[in-house]
Amino acid sequence: MTEVRFADYSDLFVDAEAQGAGADLPMDDAEGTAFLEDFVAALVDELSTQAREQGDRRAAAVVEDARAQLPYGGDEEEQGLGEPFRVLGRALTTVLQIPGLRGAAQWASGVPLLWHLAQVGRYLGRREPADDGRTLDVRIRERVLHGVDPDRPLIVVSHSLGTVVAFEALGEYEGRVPLLMTLGSPLATAAAVLHRLKPQPPRTPDPVERWLNFWDRDDIVVGRPRIEKWMLPNATGVLPETDRVDSDGMWVHTAVKYLRQASVAGPLVEALKK
């Protein structure tokens, strides 16, 4: 019998005791600011490359406008921690004016998108300890693996930040993983994410027997499909296999949109039948 588990760790990102100006910021330290600057700059670079390859002059002009707004090594103490977030939010708002992204994005402006990206940075920051000293990333991985029986095959479908969590959690897992699916993943964002992963250098988790990675060109969170070039194989030689999907309509970053694609759902159904 197949069992389905959904790992929800959204409550771990909520600080009920947060007060003051810091509560209005997605990250309130210099290291978190640096991550977001790297992440947004990487996204802008990816979009610039796509616009150039497609010969889309309008998109290229929008991207260059956004690039001109990016902060570069400013003194956060002098300008205040909030200022880089406002600048990055404006740059992302500009990026979202690209026609394809404007029609597909689930964010009306760059500010809520920045909050979404900041969750990746908070996880990779490996701070925010609980009373017992366990950092945020440790608590999230424990939540994901809690109750999983390593004596039964585990098929993992992960999305967005969840792909980063799944990658690291499976490195600690001792059971079989016939299939790992990563949807809308920021793992390939080398400048911001790849070099912050554990272990280093990144390699396919040993339990994984097949890794399928899917991306949508209009999904702003996803880097270009280079992950198989930047990831080392595991002991059995497994590397991620990347395929592009093209979703229609709004909110292409959602897991539901990816799972509606036959190229995504098909391999998942076949794996579940085995």
Results as ranks from 00 to 15, higher is better:
103 G>N: 09
221 V>P: 02
130 A>N: 12
107 W>N: 03
117 L>K: 04
17 E>Q: 15
159 H>P: 02
266 G>P: 05
15 D>G: 15
109 S>G: 14
206 D>G: 07
109 S>M: 03
206 D>I: 11
45 D>E: 11
112 P>A: 00
217 R>F: 01
190 A>K: 08
63 V>E: 04
175 G>L: 12
273 K>E: 15
217 R>K: 14
47 L>T: 05
229 K>L: 15
207 P>V: 01
127 R>Y: 10
42 A>T: 14
139 R>V: 06
37 E>L: 14
27 M>C: 12
129 P>H: 04
167 F>H: 15
109 S>D: 10
41 A>T: 15
107 W>K: 10
97 Q>M: 08
111 V>K: 08
15 D>H: 07
219 D>P: 00
170 L>F: 10
39 F>Q: 14
69 Q>H: 11
88 L>N: 13
204 T>H: 02
81 L>W: 07
177 V>T: 11
140 I>G: 01
86 R>L: 08
157 V>A: 15
253 H>E: 04
93 T>Q: 04
56 D>A: 13
239 L>P: 04
163 T>L: 13
129 P>Q: 07
54 Q>M: 11
77 E>T: 08
253 H>M: 05
242 T>P: 00
243 D>N: 09
189 T>G: 04
11 D>P: 09
248 D>A: 05
261 Q>R: 05
36 L>E: 06
255 A>K: 06
65 D>R: 05
157 V>C: 13
97 Q>Y: 00
70 L>D: 05
242 T>F: 06
103 G>Y: 01
71 P>A: 08
88 L>I: 11
209 E>S: 10
12 L>Y: 06
48 S>V: 01
99 P>S: 02
155 I>D: 08
209 E>F: 00
253 H>G: 08
128 E>R: 04
193 V>T: 13
21 A>V: 10
76 E>P: 12
19 Q>T: 09
165 V>D: 09
221 V>E: 01
212 L>M: 02
79 Q>A: 15
161 L>G: 02
98 I>C: 04
142 E>R: 07
212 L>R: 13
74 G>T: 10
58 R>H: 14
270 E>M: 13
133 G>F: 06
213 N>S: 14
132 D>G: 12
